[in-house]
Amino acid sequence: MKCLKVAFGMENDETLIDAHYGDSEFFAIYEVCENGSIKLLEKRDNKAKDMEEHDEGHGDPRKFRAIVGQLMDVDVLAAFRMGPNFLRIRDQSDKVAFFTRTRDLKLALQRVAENFDDLWEQVQEKKAEKPPIEE
């Protein structure tokens, strides 16, 4: 069965952060499968949250590498909002960025499930073209 590993940038247990993905308190890592099953795998601390940025406060390439490095095993980075590093995620990593358009985790999970086929195709394309970023 096809399944995706999705990391949501979280403010608390039920709400996605309304800030840059790299400023998330933690990442809620879920397995979302083509049959609609959804399972919480873990809550992973964001070790880069308090990292000092040198690129006018946001979009620091070092923070981008630190975030992607923490989420090497994840296919999709899901967020309500992302900052300047969104372009780096899209262009320089093997990760797919997904905008949930909601801060409600339950609704965000539903939206990932509803877009599973499209996300699956994007992940396969990324894996074929981009090697993972080293931490």
Rank of each mutant, 00 (worst) to 15 (best):
K2T: 15
F64S: 15
S24L: 02
D73G: 09
E125P: 00
E134R: 13
K106I: 03
D45Q: 12
P61K: 12
L119H: 08
A28P: 08
E134N: 10
K63W: 10
D55N: 14
P131K: 12
E56N: 15
D117Q: 03
E14K: 10
R81F: 12
R65V: 01
A78T: 05
I38D: 08
D18W: 06
L105P: 03
E135G: 06
D45V: 10
V68P: 05
K49T: 08
R101K: 12
V68S: 07
E52N: 13
F27M: 10
N35W: 13
V74I: 13
A66Y: 04
D104W: 09
Y21I: 01
D75A: 08
P84Q: 09
Q110M: 07
I133H: 03
D13C: 02
L105K: 06
N12T: 04
A79S: 04
F64M: 15
K95T: 05
D118Y: 05
L109P: 05
Q110D: 09
D60H: 07
L107V: 15
C33G: 07
Q70G: 12
V112Y: 03
V32P: 01
K39T: 10
P132Y: 04
I133E: 06
N35R: 14
F26D: 00
D104L: 11
G59P: 13
K47N: 11
D45P: 11
E129W: 13
A113N: 11
V112E: 02
F116H: 08
V123I: 05
A79G: 06
F8H: 00
M82P: 01
E25C: 07
K95Y: 07
S37Q: 15
H20Q: 13
R65A: 04
K126V: 08
L71R: 00
R81A: 11
E114S: 04
E34R: 12
Y21M: 02
H20P: 10
R62P: 08
A97M: 05
A19I: 04
D94V: 00
D94G: 01
C3W: 05
R101M: 12
E25P: 03
F99E: 07
N115E: 14
L71H: 01
S93N: 04
R111A: 05
R90W: 04
I38G: 06
L41D: 10
K49Y: 09
N46D: 13
R88H: 04
G59S: 15
P131Q: 09
A66V: 07
F86C: 01
E56D: 13
E42Y: 12
